[in-house]
């Protein structure tokens, strides 16, 4: 499967997850800006010669309510995921899923074109694709 080579750091991902869960249980914040609680949505970032691709794993969020902003080379994804309703007299046995407001920020490379952005939400993943400026793309120069 292609993902294995694309995103091979499974051990680090597990450690990261463990750390996030620890932070979630103790409500600690490691950065002055404050990482979104539990790092929601989880993000994957990749790039090709022509574009920068950002995948935000935000299941169960109304796509219309997600606020995506690109300003001065910084991409911000913000929104809210409501907690599931707990009926009266019900007991919660496991409560691991994120609920509440979220906000994550990604610094983009200098060569992205802020006017050529597309965003799609499918199967709970927000996929943002930003084209690189044509001048920055590799070009073949012909010799007369």
């Amino acid at each position: 499967m292609m993902y294995r080579s694309l995103f091979p750091r499974d051990l680090f991902a597990e450690l990261d997850r463990l750390q996030r869960e620890m932070q979630q249980s103790y409500e600690l914040s490691p950065s002055i800006r404050g990482v979104a609680r539990g790092g929601f949505p989880a993000m994957n970032v990749g790039g090709t010669a022509k574009s920068v691709e950002i995948y935000a794993f935000a299941p169960g969020v109304d796509p219309a309510s997600i606020d995506v902003q690109l300003e001065k080379g910084v991409l911000t994804i913000a929104g809210e995921r409501k907690a599931e309703a707990v009926p009266e007299k019900a007991s919660v046995h496991i409560d691991e899923r994120f609920a509440g407001r979220f906000r994550r920020v990604v610094t983009l490379p200098d060569d992205v074109d802020a006017n050529a952005v597309s965003a799609k939400y499918r199967d709970g993943v927000l996929h943002i694709s930003i084209q690189r400026r044509a001048a920055a793309q590799p070009r073949r120069i012909s010799i007369d």
Binding site: L6, F7, R9, D16, N44, G46, T48
Partner: peptide, 12 residues
């Protein structure tokens, strides 16, 4: 041809 630069979801 995409190369991952940052991956929090690293398994398929």
């Amino acid at each position: 041809g995409m190369e991952a630069t940052h991956a929090e979801v690293s398994l398929p």
